[in-house]
């Protein structure tokens, strides 16, 4: 059976209004602007305030993506939300987005794959369009990590920010679209980046909250080393699947966890700085939202040309990681 060519036909993103700068953090915890910049590349990040939430950002990003794709919400066949910070415990954020958009013909579900969530969701959407009767799928990466960080832990709280990005995926005939994707997991490394509480084993009780079990714990150095390794390898793997090398890439869109992870991976791939996109300086690590926000910002700047070869690669808690190679369709 001939597989359909699937591509991205619309992009959108939404960010909280409130800006939290390194200078602001200096007043909250024992840290410095210089230390954060040198260690992470982050200068400021966005944090939700009154009236903003996972859902409001997801809906705003989705509406932009639909508009750019020239689609009505009722034309959507499926909505996938990649997130570790749902709007509420039940039902899925995707169902709440469906209701807000009035996308009444879509099936809707959430998935969790840490910071790799967007690559997972995109891969699943691609498969549904290529191999089933579904035609139009909305993929959203949204995370409100400000809710999961211990604002007294200077090692982690400086790293993260809130945001949402969305893409519409459809059949395309003007480019090769999504050429290759690869997903990976290594659950044996779960305890290097995790939140112990909030699930069934350590439920939300006053005692568990007092112990800060609902916050992110991370072994920074080990995560750093593993991240560089697997981001390089998975990027090379999707390139190899199409007989390409990093030199063929027009742009690489990496997950934004730390500028030093990105720089080290970039050097190992032998790529020039201009070809590896970043926005970590403005937003920090937005988990599932980092890649789709970066993608939409590049689209808004008019950076991509139809036929450009783009790589996307992410890494996150699980561990999970994955990469995607695509030819730009717009």
């Amino acid at each position: 059976m001939k597989q359909e060519t699937v591509g991205i036909t619309g992009t959108g993103h939404a960010l909280p209004k409130r800006v939290l700068s390194n200078r602001d953090l200096e007043k909250m915890i024992d840290t410095s602007d210089r230390w954060i910049r040198e260690r992470t590349g982050i200068i400021e990040r966005r944090i939700i305030s009154e009236g903003e939430s996972t859902l409001t950002l997801a809906v705003k990003a989705s509406q932009q993506a639909l508009q750019k794709a020239g689609l009505l919400p009722e034309e959507l066949d499926m909505i996938i939300v990649a997130s570790v910070t749902p709007e509420q415990a039940l039902p899925s954020t995707a169902c709440l987005v469906q209701a807000k958009l009035n996308a009444k013909n879509a099936s809707a579900f959430d998935l969790t794959a840490g910071c790799t969530g967007f690559i997972y969701a995109l891969t699943i959407a691609k498969q549904f369009i290529a191999n089933s009767s579904l035609h139009k799928i909305l993929v959203i990466g949204v995370d409100i990590l400000s809710y999961l960080v211990d604002w007294e832990d200077r090692k982690t709280c400086v790293l993260f920010g809130d945001g949402a990005g969305a893409v519409v995926m459809e059949k395309v005939n003007n480019s090769r679209g999504i050429i290759a994707t690869r997903l990976y997991s290594e659950g044996s490394k779960a305890d290097l980046l995790y939140i112990p509480g909030g699930g069934t084993v350590l439920p939300i009780t006053k005692e568990n909250l007092d112990k800060k079990l609902n916050f992110i714990k991370m072994n920074g150095p080990e995560v750093f080393k593993f991240a560089v390794k697997v981001m390089v390898e998975s990027t090379q793997e999707v390139l190899k699947m199409d007989g390409k090398t990093a030199a063929d890439l027009s742009y690489l869109i990496p997950h934004q966890a730390n500028i030093r992870i990105i720089d080290t991976a970039r050097k190992r791939l032998g790529m020039e700085k201009e070809k590896v996109l970043t926005n970590i300086e403005k937003y920090g690590n937005m988990s599932s939202a980092s890649i789709p926000v970066l993608l939409d910002e590049a689209v808004e700047k008019g950076l991509f040309r139809q036929g450009d070869l783009l790589g996307m690669v992410a890494f996150g808690a699980g561990f999970t990681w994955g990469a995607c190679l695509m030819e730009w369709s717009l």
Binding site: R39, G220, K225, T264
Partner: peptide
């Protein structure tokens, strides 16, 4: 700090084509 050491170890691994385990680090 620990991040500096990790980055140096990664550079050394590349230069000398060997792998230094986390326990060794």
């Amino acid at each position: 700090d620990s991040l500096d050491v990790v980055e140096m170890v990664m550079a050394l691994e590349e230069e000398f084509d060997l792998e230094i385990s986390d326990e060794e680090v």
